[in-house]
Amino acid sequence: GAPPNHSFLSAAVDHPWERATTPTKVPYYINHQTETTHWDHPKMTELMNSLSELNEVRFSAYRTALKLRTVQKRMCLDLVTVNRAIDAFDSHGLRAQNDKVLDVTDMISVLKTIYDQLANENPSLVTVPLCLDLAVNWLLNVYDSQRTGQIRVLSFKVGIVLLCKGHLEQKYRYLFRLMADPSRLVDQRKLGLLLHDCIQIPRQLGEVASFGGSNIEPSVRSCFEQAGNSTTTIEAVQFLSWLEREPQSMVWLPVLHRVAASEA
C-alpha cells in the first residue's frame, strides 16, 4: 500500500527550522536563519548540551543515570511501560525478528502507536510529533550514527525498553527472552549481541569508558564464569543472578532505576 503519511512530523519544529528527509527517509533539520543543516533536532542539540552541567557529578554510574533520566523524560519514555512497548512491537509484527532491518518509516509507525496511546492518556504531557521525532533522533544517534536510515529490530527494542518505565527484573527477563532459543537458553554470541546493544546507550552519552568500554567480551565471560558451567549456554536465572551483582557494563541501568525511584 501507499507509504504511511508522516507529514504530521513537520510540526516537530518551528520557524526558522524546517524538517526534511533524505532519500532513505532519514530526518534532518534545516535552519533557514543560519543556512545550515543538522542530523539532530534542535531540541536534541539543546538536550545534549544541557547534560554537560551534570559533568560535575563525580560517580560515573550516577552521572550517567542522571543524564539518561533527563533524556528519558524529554522523550516521555518514562511514561511508557515495558508492556506497552512490547505490545506495540508485537502489533507491528516484530516478535522474533531480531535480525530484521527497520527503516525510519517502520520506526515511526511503531513509535506512533506508542505515543498516540500515551497522548490520549496524557494530553498535556505528550506532544506526539516532537516526542516521536526526538525518539527517532535518539535511536539513530545510538544505533545508526552513520545515518544509513536502518536499525536492526533487536537494537530498536533494546534502545526503547531500557529507557521505558518498569521493574528492573521485568526488563532483564524481556532482554533474555529476546535472545533465548526455543529451549530458553542463550549462548555467548547471543549474550554478546545483547550487551553490545545495551552498552551503546551510555556510549552515546560519552560515558562508555566507565562501564568497561565498547568491548563487552569481558562482560560476557564474567557472566558465563559466574554461571560456573563449562557448557556454552545460560538460563534466565543465571543471567538474572549475574545482573543482580550489578556488573560494570550494566550498572548504569539499576542506578537509573534508583534515580527514578528516588523522585517518586
Partner: peptide, 17 residues
C-alpha cells in the same frame, strides 16, 4: 562530556527555499 553525534556522514547541504 556528552560525545557529539559522530556524524561521519554530513546531512544534505543547505539549499535556500
Amino acid at each position: 562530556r556528552p560525545k557529539p553525534t559522530p556524524t561521519y556522514r554530513m546531512p544534505p547541504p543547505y539549499v535556500p527555499p
